[in-house]
Amino acid sequence: MFKGFRDFILRGNVIELATAVIIGGAFTAIVTAISDKIINPLIAAVGSPDMGGLGFRIRPEVEATFVDFGAVITAAINFLIVAAVVYFVIVMPMNKVNELRKRGVAEDEVPPTAEELLAEIRDLMAQGNQQQVPDQRVDGDDTPRR
């Protein structure tokens, strides 16, 4: 049990994952700052002066009923920024490294499909039936001879 855990830890995936989480947390702070200080004021400028953002109140006298479209747009922009950075900084380079690693390694044989295996079995059975010598019976004798 401990050997498997040790192998898992030393394989490198855990270290890469921990690094990604730390970088992701730090980068999220940057994206949140950009959203709060740049994107939110731009979106709020589109809304009316008495609303305080892009949205509307379901009940004018209750502030908690404000439907804030600006927050949803900001969250979508945050997601797109984080996804783009993760793809271009982490995923794309890792795919390139994996591709370079695979270049030097011969590709494994592709295993046959079920249809190919069934066709091969059918052909072998047909060959086996053709190799059997047919029974030759002598007139009046029911004993098979080969």
Results as ranks from 00 to 15, higher is better:
M1H: 11
F2S: 10
K3S: 14
G4P: 06
G4K: 13
F5S: 15
D7S: 12
F8S: 10
F8H: 06
I9M: 13
L10P: 01
G12I: 03
G12F: 07
I15R: 08
I15Q: 06
I15C: 06
E16I: 14
E16V: 13
L17E: 13
A18T: 04
T19Y: 09
A20F: 14
I23S: 04
I23Y: 02
G24I: 04
G24C: 05
F27L: 10
F27E: 05
T28W: 15
V31P: 12
T32Q: 12
A33K: 12
A33H: 11
A33W: 15
D36V: 09
D36K: 14
K37T: 15
I39P: 05
N40A: 09
N40L: 08
N40Y: 05
N40G: 00
N40K: 14
P41A: 10
I43Y: 04
G47Q: 02
P49W: 08
D50L: 09
M51H: 09
M51T: 14
M51F: 05
M51L: 13
G52I: 05
G53V: 08
G53W: 04
L54F: 09
L54S: 02
G55I: 02
F56C: 04
F56W: 10
R57Q: 04
P60W: 00
E61L: 11
A64Y: 03
T65W: 07
F66D: 01
V67C: 05
D68M: 02
F69Y: 05
F69V: 09
G70I: 01
V72T: 11
V72A: 01
V72C: 00
I73D: 02
I73M: 04
A75S: 12
A75D: 10
A76G: 10
A76C: 07
I77D: 03
I77A: 03
F79P: 00
L80K: 09
L80V: 11
L80H: 06
I81Q: 07
V82P: 07
A84N: 07
V85L: 05
V85S: 02
V85W: 09
V85G: 06
Y87V: 08
Y87Q: 08
V89H: 07
V89N: 01
I90P: 03
M94T: 12
M94A: 10
K96L: 07
K96S: 10
K96D: 07
V97R: 13
V97M: 07
V97K: 02
E99W: 12
L100R: 12
R101C: 05
K102S: 15
R103A: 06
G104S: 06
G104L: 04
V105Q: 14
A106Y: 11
E107H: 09
D108A: 13
D108G: 13
P111F: 02
P111M: 03
P111G: 08
P112M: 04
T113A: 01
T113P: 06
T113V: 03
E115H: 06
L117I: 13
L118C: 08
A119N: 10
E120A: 12
R122I: 11
L124G: 05
M125K: 15
M125P: 00
Q127C: 05
N129R: 15
N129L: 15
Q130S: 15
Q132M: 14
D135E: 11
Q136P: 00
R137D: 00
G140I: 00
D141W: 01
T143M: 01
R146C: 00
